[in-house]
Design a binder for these strands. Structure first.
Length: 569
DNA sequence: GCCGTTTTCGGCCCGACTGTTTTCAGTCG
């Protein structure tokens, strides 16, 4: 029996129970059991006493054991008999939860979207106690777009919306402090919505600014302290604003940054100390409320160091406090090793990129334009590469405190050969190899291509090793664990591409790379100056994998970096 | 249904908003 199937079954049981209007604590007990099983790293066969896991007791263990022995759950089967399947997806309809759906089913025999729509249109829903005309209208309206709207949006689709809101809030004098919160702040690959915490003493003006100055498709809620809207963008984006007093800001930001599991763990810790955490402060044993200037102070109140949002996930981060010092921060980054200029498909010149990098406070960087094979990107021939070198050296001469290295992002061709000869490569300071073509080749062929590159003495790094696009496509699906092994053998760098479209390597692979001591470069792959900002996303993503900063090439000094790039020359 | 040095019953994180009510239930995060 597959552990995943057991987890899903427990979750399904919870869902069905919810639709039976079962005791909510019982429902959450099944969800907690599923989560506990998922959080346990052991495989099923390695667990001898399942009830020893916190959150799994007699009842849920019985379900698990039955599944392991027979492959089915009689509990779920019973529930399926009592609850029509068509009701399950309706749980996702905003405004409808288990209790309301149970009522609709019991009183009006509503079993799916069609019967729900019919009942609304016939005006029968409004006759139920607890429902009225407004609810009926709302359900009908939601049914129109039901199923067509994406449930989660990838980070690259949300980021521009976050920037736009940042700009609006920064422009309001009534706003004292603000920050994005939620899973976006934790740099999740996808998020259901965007959360913002805004400190102000002038709720009304801020609320009006939000409602009038953003392009809004729909206003879900507009209360005193909470404003919920759907922005009118290519994909509609849900945004929640929490308006709080300045002194509540730190606790509110912590609360709405989550994750849920992190908050639960924090609240349990608080409780064990006789305190109570709410989004507005920490209630002490004597009933007084303590508030904080910053999240740092909030954590310090519980004798904890600052835990970065990115690692606030399972709650287990509270058991890894001694590793926090090794996490990389944006201040540790002194270089960016992958970017493009007008020589290929970039928007800015060598000199413009160089100035922008200096403004970032970096000590060095590498210009890595595309190679000749990539004609759509105006890839460089060996001749143009020669000319570019002069351009880069000229920049260095006028900016002696900074070093711009001359590199390339060379294509690994579909036939497995490299786009430049050794004579060309050995003249370059830094050589990136990457795949931009024939994604659909077999894994063997893809791996053979990567192997050529990894083994080549002049290649320093493999860029965006999977070619995935977050939330869109999987990429060329290489055997990443094998690639990591090769990189370890040959002393090559693997890239964490900081562009939110890409973010490969993914967290799981970054962890594996760290176990093998493979150096990781966090690079923006910028095609324009403003994309240099992606470094922050990359750094935070690396934190999520608990990547040690010592292993991150961009934290190395110029001397360390030079020692690395010259070792095979 | 799960848990427990406040321990075998009673609480389970906590609070805002909406829509229904006329003091609150349900939903949501």
């Amino acid at each position: 029996m597959n552990k995943k199937i057991i987890i899903r079954t427990l979750e399904k049981i919870a869902l069905y129970m919810e639709l039976q209007a079962e005791n909510p604590f019982k429902v959450s007990a099944f969800r907690k059991a599923a989560a506990a099983l998922e959080a346990d790293e052991r495989s099923l066969s390695e667990i001898d006493d399942i009830t020893a896991i916190k959150g799994i007791g007699k009842g849920t263990a019985a379900v698990i054991l039955e599944l392991m022995e027979t492959g089915v759950s009689s509990t779920l089967k019973e529930l399926e008999k009592m609850v029509p399947k068509g009701l399950i997806p309706l749980m996702k309809l905003p405004g409808l939860g288990g209790k309301k759906l149970a009522k609709l089913y019991q009183e009006l025999n509503i079993v799916d979207t069609d019967s729900l729509k019919a009942a609304c249109e016939a005006g029968r829903v409004r006759e139920l106690a607890g429902f009225a005309a407004k609810t009926e209208e709302k359900i009908l309206k939601e049914l129109e777009t039901f199923g067509s709207r994406k449930e989660r949006l990838p980070i690259w689709q949300l980021e521009p919306a976050v920037l736009e809101i940042n700009e609006l809030l920064a422009s309001l004098p009534e706003v004292e402090k603000f920050s994005v919160a939620g899973s976006f702040r934790r740099v999740a690959e996808t998020s259901k919505d965007i959360d913002f915490i805004v400190a102000t003493s002038d709720y009304e003006i801020v609320r009006e600014a939000i409602l009038t100055r953003l392009v809004i498709l729909e206003t879900i809620a507009a209360g005193d302290t909470k404003v919920s809207v759907i922005l009118d963008r290519d994909e509609p984006v849900s945004v929640d604003f929490r308006l709080v007093k300045s002194e509540e800001y730190a606790t509110a930001l912590h609360h709405f940054t989550g994750s849920k599991d992190h908050n639960v763990r924090m609240r349990q810790l608080a409780k064990s100390m006789g305190k109570k955490i709410s989004e507005y402060g920490v209630e002490q044993e004597d009933g007084s409320i303590v508030t904080f200037e910053t999240e740092e102070q909030f954590f310090a109140h519980f004798d904890l160091p600052f835990i970065p949002p990115t690692v606030r996930e399972s709650g287990k981060e509270l058991d890894r406090l001694d590793e926090l010092d090794h996490l990389v921060n944006l201040e540790d980054i002194v270089s960016d090793l992958h970017m493009h200029t007008t020589w290929s498909d970039g928007a800015h010149s060598v000199s413009e990129m160089g100035q922008a990098l200096i403004a970032k406070g970096y000590t060095h960087a590498v210009i890595t334009d595309h190679s000749q094979y990539l004609k759509v990107a105006n890839g460089l021939t060996p001749e143009r590469l020669q000319q570019q070198k002069l351009d880069i050296y000229a920049f260095n001469e006028t900016n002696p405190d900074f070093c711009l290295y001359h590199g390339t992002e060379m294509d690994i061709l579909p036939d497995g050969t490299l786009d430049f000869d050794d004579e060309v490569l050995k003249e370059l300071d830094f050589v990136i190899a990457s795949i931009h073509s024939s994604f659909t080749q077999s894994q063997d062929k893809i791996m053979a291509r990567l192997k050529t590159a990894v083994e080549h003495p002049y290649v320093h790094m493999i860029a965006h090793p999977t070619g995935r696009i977050v939330g869109e496509r999987g990429g060329y699906e290489p055997d990443v664990p094998l690639l990591i092994e090769w990189a370890a053998q040959h002393g090559k760098i693997l890239e964490l591409n900081a562009n939110p479209y890409r973010l490969d390597l993914c967290i799981e692979h970054l962890q594996l790379a760290m176990e093998h001591n493979v150096p990781i470069a966090i690079n923006t792959d910028a095609h324009a100056i403003d994309q240099l900002r992606f470094m922050e996303i990359g750094v935070k993503y690396a934190q999520k994998a608990w990547l040690k900063k010592e292993l991150i090439v961009n934290t190395w000094s110029k001397e360390q970096f030079e020692a690395f790039i010259t070792k095979n020359k």
